[in-house]
């Protein structure tokens, strides 16, 4: 019962196929890129034809979009949202701010490299990426899921101490609940 192409079992293949075609995105806009999301989801670019739709709460969501710069205060909330999401979960990072800090690289209150704080599956570069680029990013994520390589949640759990250490460097007064996920 082996699928030759990527050595998944049939059950695993079906699961990944359905995950790929049903991505609920967490509607949480962190930076200026949040303005591209309505355009992506509505009539003009219509992401719903790819099975992408908004989810209202982190419990129901699969994809967390980090749309632009992250202030240190926002990072705290993003970590809370991320930890409340259920496995398997995916993170898409938007724009240059999440890659190297972008135009806020020397700011005292925005983080520079998102990957040091939560694991990232797909980066979409641009400042800001247009909806076409966003959809291309989603398709890249879909390919990754179909190949069974999107293991965001496991990566986070396995390297939790490293991520926590990095998070504590920014969030000095850690008053956050621990989520059992």
């Amino acid at each position: 019962m082996e699928n030759k192409r990527n050595s998944q079992t049939i059950a695993e293949y079906i699961k990944n196929w359905s995950r790929k075609h049903s991505l609920f995105i967490m509607a949480y806009g962190t930076g200026c890129g949040a303005i591209e999301i309505p355009a992506t989801l509505t009539s003009r670019y219509d992401a719903e034809r790819l099975g992408i739709r908004g989810a209202a709460t982190p419990r129901q969501a699969d994809v967390l979009l980090i749309t632009g710069y992250l202030a240190t205060k926002t990072l705290k909330r993003v970590i809370r949202v991320y930890e409340q999401m259920q496995d398997p979960k995916y993170v898409i990072a938007f724009g240059s701010c999440t890659i190297n800090g972008g135009m806020y690289y020397d700011s005292y209150n925005t983080i520079n490299v998102l990957e040091k704080y939560i694991p990232v599956d797909v980066y979409i570069n641009g400042c800001m990426p247009r909806p076409e680029a966003v959809i291309a990013g989603f398709q890249q994520l879909q390919d990754k899921i179909a190949r069974g390589e999107a293991d965001n949640g496991t990566r986070y759990k396995e390297n939790l101490e490293w991520y926590r250490a990095n998070q504590h460097r920014v969030i000095k007064n850690w008053r956050m609940p621990d989520y059992n996920w």
Binding site: K15, S18, R19, S43, G51, D62
Partner: peptide, 21 residues
């Protein structure tokens, strides 16, 4: 819009049932 397929709800359901946690 083009919209999803009419089987989209089934796909969503399979996905929800195959959540790991």
């Amino acid at each position: 819009r083009v919209g999803p397929t009419i089987w989209q709800n089934f796909i969503d359901l399979v996905k929800l049932q195959s959540k790991k946690t």
